[in-house]
């Protein structure tokens, strides 16, 4: 009985700190948006060069790995699709499934997970280090708002770049799948492209891109919250960096499900 009460108490504490962290995340997101929109009025505009620098870091540097993985996923989906549809003798319909899965689900998901691993963790590590080095206090006493200086630029870069990266992943994935399908089913790549264009509605594209933008926000905010909560030196930074990747990927997958549930039904 006592053990049960203890367990209940610990659960309660965990829940309370979870809620507090969620509130912190929401506040941060609100403040980061505030500075993006009203920074100029507060005489602290969000600097475009630092947004661009973040964008280079998040986007251009991630392009090779995103290209490789989308190619792989395009091929994988084509192979699996043809295998599955063969049972009904309906291989020729494979393009439908592959195109929709790539654009609506796989591209945003793989891009989000990659960016969480690359940039979300880097953001957490950077903020955590700055915190334990008193660099954040240092910004504050200089009259530079740390959220404006450290959170808004990556947030904006993520919101713009995640959809762009996803669009690129769409194109690469569809192309790779098309290559496999046209060889396997002895069609032409042009015919495949035609089919894709008629199958894909603007709505499907937007579904994927909107999710990508949301994932971008999640990755940024989760990275920043974990970085800002660092305590206990270098070890703490490592711990929170790991935590940020795990949380960001979980948040992406769960949000994806909720989004699909709300939008698709």
């Amino acid at each position: 009985m006592n053990a049960f009460l203890n367990w209940l108490e610990r659960l309660g504490r965990k829940a309370a700190s979870g809620v507090a962290e969620f509130g912190f995340a929401a506040t941060l997101f609100g403040q980061a948006l505030y500075w993006l929109v009203l920074g100029r009025w507060r005489r602290q505009p969000v600097r475009m060069p630092s947004v661009a620098a973040q964008a280079m870091d998040i986007g251009i540097a991630a392009l090779p790995i995103i290209t490789v993985l989308s190619t792989t996923i395009g091929l994988m989906l084509a192979i699996q699709g043809i295998y599955t549809l063969k049972t009904f003798g309906a291989e020729s319909r494979v393009t439908l499934g592959v195109a929709l899965s790539i654009v609506r689900e796989f591209s945003p998901l793989i891009t989000g997970i990659l960016v969480a691993g690359r940039s979300g963790s880097a953001l957490a590590a950077r903020l955590g280090t700055m915190r334990i080095n008193q660099e954040i206090d240092s910004l504050t006493v200089m009259g530079i708002n740390p959220v404006r200086f450290l959170v808004s630029p990556p947030l904006m870069a993520m919101m713009v770049l995640m959809p762009l990266l996803t669009l690129w992943a769409d194109l690469v994935g569809l192309f790779a799948a098309g290559l496999y399908i046209s060889i396997e089913l002895q069609g032409s790549l042009a015919a495949y492209a035609d089919e894709v264009v008629t199958i894909l509605k603007l709505n499907d594209m937007l579904h994927g891109l909107a999710k990508a933008a949301i994932f971008g926000v999640l990755v940024t905010i989760v990275g920043v919250v974990n970085g800002a909560s660092v305590s206990g030196g270098a070890e703490g930074v490592g711990r929170m960096t790991t935590r940020s990747v795990v949380h960001a990927i979980s948040a992406i997958v769960i949000t994806d499900m909720i989004f699909v549930f709300l939008v698709t039904r």
């Binding site: 950077r126 280090t129 700055m130 080095n133 008193q134 660099e135 206090d137 240092s138 006493v141 200089m142």
Partner: peptide, 13 residues
């Protein structure tokens, strides 16, 4: 106002 922290707190990046 200017502040020189004990550890310096220079931006390492």
């Amino acid at each position: 106002m200017g502040v020189a922290f004990q550890s310096g707190a220079l931006f390492s990046s």
